[in-house]
Design a protein around this nucleic acid. Sequence first.
DNA 1: CTGAAAGCGCTTACAG
DNA 2: CTGAAAGCGCTTACAG
Lengths: 347, 347
Amino acid sequence: MVSAHETPAKRPTIYDVAREAGVSHQTVSRLLLGYDGIRPATRTRVEAALQALDYRTNLTARNLRNGRTGMISLAIPSLNQPYFAELAQSVIRAAREVGLRVFVETMEGDRDRELAVLSRSRGNLVDGVIFAPTVLSAGDLAQVTVGCPLVLLGDRIFDSGYPHVAMANSEGARVAVEHLIALGRRRVAVIGVEEPGNHGAAELRFAGYRAALDRAGIPFDPRLAFDGGEWLKAGGVHAVDQLIESRVPFDAVFGFNDALALGALRGLLRAGFSVPGDVAVVGFDDTEDGLYSTPSLTSINPGRDDIARTAVSLLDRAITGASTEGDRSEIQANFRLMERESTATRT
Amino acid sequence: MVSAHETPAKRPTIYDVAREAGVSHQTVSRLLLGYDGIRPATRTRVEAALQALDYRTNLTARNLRNGRTGMISLAIPSLNQPYFAELAQSVIRAAREVGLRVFVETMEGDRDRELAVLSRSRGNLVDGVIFAPTVLSAGDLAQVTVGCPLVLLGDRIFDSGYPHVAMANSEGARVAVEHLIALGRRRVAVIGVEEPGNHGAAELRFAGYRAALDRAGIPFDPRLAFDGGEWLKAGGVHAVDQLIESRVPFDAVFGFNDALALGALRGLLRAGFSVPGDVAVVGFDDTEDGLYSTPSLTSINPGRDDIARTAVSLLDRAITGASTEGDRSEIQANFRLMERESTATRT
DNA sequence: CTGAAAGCGCTTACAG
DNA sequence: CTGAAAGCGCTTACAG
């Protein structure tokens, strides 16, 4: 039965508290806001009234008055992608520390929903938005009026004028592939490649892959490059299945994210390959699931916590109107290669 | 440079729009709310003004007036746990469909933060809360005044009077273990066991485990029961390491969630066991990562989408004051055994 | 140290 | 079909 917990007919206001305590409502407000200069006797009376009525501030009213809400939006593709789930957790934590609460908006790769987040933002109760687009371009962004401070995440939009926290995509990818090459691998398949011109992480990571090959004097073999679909595990499995079927020789796989790499790992093991014996595998993102696969997955740690903290801090400064003069608006987090079993020299 | 995107000094209000259009602000409000009975000529003028000023409704003001915000809280342990990340995604999606936006509050197993979610809820801008406690008990819940509709998730608190969506923990666990027994396994280790008296999923799943053994006439061997820490993958690895070291014979492992089971899988493979050849492994939750492990993980699908949808719908009904008469307040989602390679008869 | 007044931007009866 | 008024619950100068 729900009846035991009916919502009370009416919540007490500061006027109710004031009446109960025999003071004016401003006095109640001042006490609530922690102003000092309230006579002890008055304070006691008000506090008793607060207690008696079980008063809670109506934050909507406070927000209307203050013109701020203490809420921000985090707009990401989906919490079903481990990287974004972990990123969201980091953002929520960082936001907490500066007194902000986080709406999670999942746009699921839908163009209209990405646009909606931005265009609704002004009225939509939030003081700011952290936005990780997957389909919108710099041009799209220039079209809409964003009604509040915005911080961009990810690798689709650079130099938009908005603060932007990016990963070291290209360098990270290069280091990942150089690591494979240092192991003696020269036939490195790559999964997650997208059509050129489709800007974003795919392009940058591919550039890093190419750079590593070039430096080692290894020619690029397009038969080793695969589409990754939506960069989910299923895409990794699919790519590796194709690769195996093609009979093109290969001795390593670089997945553009951990999901692709773990999918690839899955496909390879199922097909009877040994990893890293026959094929070494590297991912990108350093999500938790790569730690516990067998073999565990070598990956590029893109500095997720750093990214979250930086994004929140940039947004917070923009919201509070702190001088953003000294802030660079294009920031790149530090990355690290995490060596694990999938590229171990001996199994 | 951020300067290109300064926040405009002042947002236009309906008064500004009204002045621009030469009507009263109520007319603007009515048009915005889609009321009909506005003369076409007037409508045109107002719409032009709306456009010209790039007006967006101030939702804080609307909410103050309406006494509702269209926002709910989803209070869960952490998005770093795949089960909760996927659940959050499902809740966000279900909420979207009924026009609600979701705050994700992560309590990270902290008692004070669990309490805070409830006690702040009244003032805290949300119309309702979906709450998945990990430490609060029914007694704690009875202590606090929850200021808004509440729906409980999970398996710590039953019969509190609040609507509650639970899993078929005990039955699901029983079916999982019966599945192992049907494979001929009789030495089923179990990971995630907690002290008796600590109510919740652990207790219920353990009961299911015991029931399966009992029905098969297999005596319970306490040397096969392991603590699971926080039910993360690391806990599964740790438990299996202990198990192996103990030299107690076993031929199957039941992890109380997929993270534990995947950790166990990892530990077993690393130690040279074959799965399912030497040891069959079953989990609970059916998260995405179990689909792509090698071997893929047999698990209990607890009906996550169902749970999310039901919880949102119960909350929405409570918020809108729809008759909750016919609603049962204790609901149990349907589960399904998902058979995969980790319990396949032949590898 | 405390009270009277105004206003944040909206919506909703109430007139006309 | 449209306008004048009141009020949602706060906070902040301004008096006293």
